[in-house]
């Protein structure tokens, strides 16, 4: 996308051609069809069950703007819901940061869930299907790992937890 696009203008057809080229370039750079710049990250503070819904809805919008299918957007929104719920359940508060990724050649989405809660004592154990310290299903973290393409977790006891996940457009 480095190169400039020149459109010679001498007739009304050129006008249409020029604006179409402009639109294509804008979309390629990562503007959404509605015109919003996708460069900027979206931060959603998380401290209640309403924030969980808010975060997953914002995640879905960004995913759709990046060009993910509605099905893929649902996978991403589901992962966000699980990560946000873990913040509410275990850390009381934190944030979800959503960002469109448009480094060539792939488009994608990155979600960071961050809190300063109690941290996870044994990460390996927490990533196992069915492990839960709260008597819940224990499918959140391992499920998020399956839903997304990349998964990183960093957690320190009494310091907090950060989970970073990415999904790439096929």
């Amino acid at each position: 996308m480095e190169q400039e696009i020149r459109v010679p203008i001498s007739s009304d057809k050129n006008i249409v051609n020029a604006r179409q080229k402009g639109r294509s370039a804008a979309l390629a750079v990562g503007f959404s069809p509605g015109g919003t710049a996708l460069e900027q990250e979206i931060r959603v503070p998380i401290s209640s069950d309403k924030d969980i819904v808010d975060a997953r809805q914002k995640g879905r919008s960004v995913a759709l703007a990046v060009g993910f299918s509605p099905g893929a957007a649902t996978l991403i929104a589901t992962a966000i819901s699980e990560l946000a719920r873990n913040i509410v359940s275990y850390a009381k508060s934190g944030e979800i940061v959503i960002q469109a990724l448009h480094g060539s050649p792939r488009l994608g989405i990155q979600v960071i869930a961050r809190d300063q809660g109690p941290g996870i004592h044994d990460i390996k154990q927490a990533l196992r299907d069915g492990f839960s310290t709260s008597g819940s299903l224990g499918l959140g973290l391992p499920g998020v790992k399956r839903l997304m393409d990349e998964f990183q977790i960093d957690s320190r006891e009494n310091r907090g937890t950060t989970v970073m996940v990415k999904k790439w457009k096929q």
């Binding site: 099905g71 649902t74 996978l75 589901t78 499918l139 499920g143 399956r146 839903l147």
Partner: peptide
């Protein structure tokens, strides 16, 4: 249950 919702549920392990 919508197809894409079902798909996400299966991936989660539900």
């Amino acid at each position: 249950i919508q197809p894409e919702v079902a798909f996400a549920m299966v991936q989660l392990g539900l």
